[in-house]
Design a protein around this nucleic acid. Structure first.
Lengths: 219, 219
DNA sequence: ATTTCCCTTAAGAAATTCACGTAAGATCAC
DNA sequence: GTGATCTTACGTGAATTTCTTAAGGGAAAT
């Protein structure tokens, strides 16, 4: 049975040594090599590509997220495990977005690190409890925003105005709107002016954006 | 110390009895009452509002998500715990969106149910492992979509065209664009015509939507 | 009953856009 | 070098929108 080949990227010697010490006793793992910068990382893995790349977020010449992006393009088979002291939601989100398969905080345990390595080697995703909690918070926040945003500013428009705004933002020109609603084109214009004044919008562009933001039309 | 007041909504007698049996021995909980439909639920809680509402998703006259929505409006202090046999991502998302504080699958354990009740009573959110996993999957999926979508259709526009489109979609009129870029207004018009033809867009409205979709401008 | 708000219509003037066509210099790939 | 593409630019007439001002009728509120 072949071992899981691992490459380590972190700019602190001590951290790399610590991780190696934790992993050395694991029979099925093989530490292929290590690097302390993005440049060094790509030079070395080009010669001998690992299965798993363990990446720190902050590095001298670049960052783990940028490396992850390049990896997913250049080595689609390679799995990236982010190991970072930052548990900031943006870092997590962007890491996942960039293609990372796992994310662990640096104060993780040996057991968790091993679980993570095995999980992502098997094609799973792995996030530590701390990270999962942050992701869940974010999930909840997003779901709530999704609910609140459409009605945060109660729409002060009349139903007729909304009707006209809807058609306009769907791409109909005034003439078509007036035909559809069987009213004069002048009326359509007046309505639009009213809307713009009410909402203090200065251009039709803003009008369209308003309609989209307030879910009067689909994007 | 006052007990946590609980109200149960599920259309199956057996399920309600099962939950009651699980909770009856918990000293700090008080089962206020139960209902088998949305209508019955609102009638009863109006008389004696509970702290926590345990809700099934599927009900004869409505569903748990609709009830949750009404609860968050009419009883903002009341916490909703969804207990459903469905672990569908949409149900979970919409439940959270509607204001549910927790979500458990029906095959949950007594311990987990108690943990959930206590957690959401304390103002926390609670999701079982199964549900958390689904939420995480969704998180990952969304992060990936967020990454893929902007480049699904490679933008066939030149950098100058993108520049013009950006300014236009930001709300500048042609004259302002021509001033900013120090080119003729005719040129701005020509560029816009080129863009519209390339993308087969029929109106400026579509042009703006295109710019937003492709993240050339913020909404 | 009076007021207020909404919907409607209207029109002229100014500004803007649209839809054509035309064209010339720059850059880049073959 | 040659052709293709990009960028720049102009013209013209028609279409459209925008701005502004004005006003009547109906419905709802006070």
């Amino acid at each position: 049975m072949s071992k899981i080949r691992i490459f380590l990227v972190d700019d602190h010697q001590l951290v790399r040594d610590g991780i190696k010490a934790l992993l050395i006793s694991a029979e099925d793992l093989l530490i292929l090599g290590e690097a302390s910068s993005g440049r060094e990382c790509f030079e070395k893995i080009a010669l001998d590509p690992p299965d798993i790349l363990i990446l720190d977020i902050s590095l001298p010449d670049t960052n783990g997220i940028e490396i992850t992006k390049r990896i997913t393009v250049e080595y689609p088979e390679m799995r990236v495990l982010i190991l970072s002291m930052y548990t900031n939601e943006d870092f997590i989100f962007n890491s996942v977005k960039a293609g990372a398969r796992g994310y662990l905080p640096k104060n993780t345990s040996r057991e968790e690190l091993l679980s993570a390595i095995h999980a992502i080697y098997e094609g799973e995703e792995f996030f530590s409890d701390t990270i999962s909690r942050i992701m869940l918070k974010s999930y909840v926040r997003k779901a709530k925003e999704d609910d609140l945003s459409p009605q945060r500013g109660p729409i002060p428009l009349t139903s007729r105005e909304i009707e006209i705004l809807k058609l306009f933002a769907e791409g109909y020109i005034n003439k078509e709107i007036s035909d559809q609603l069987d009213i004069s084109i002048r009326t359509v214009e007046t309505h639009k002016n009213h809307i713009m004044k009410k909402l203090e919008l200065k251009s039709t562009v803003e009008l369209i954006k308003y309609a989209i933001r307030n879910k009067i039309v689909e994007l």
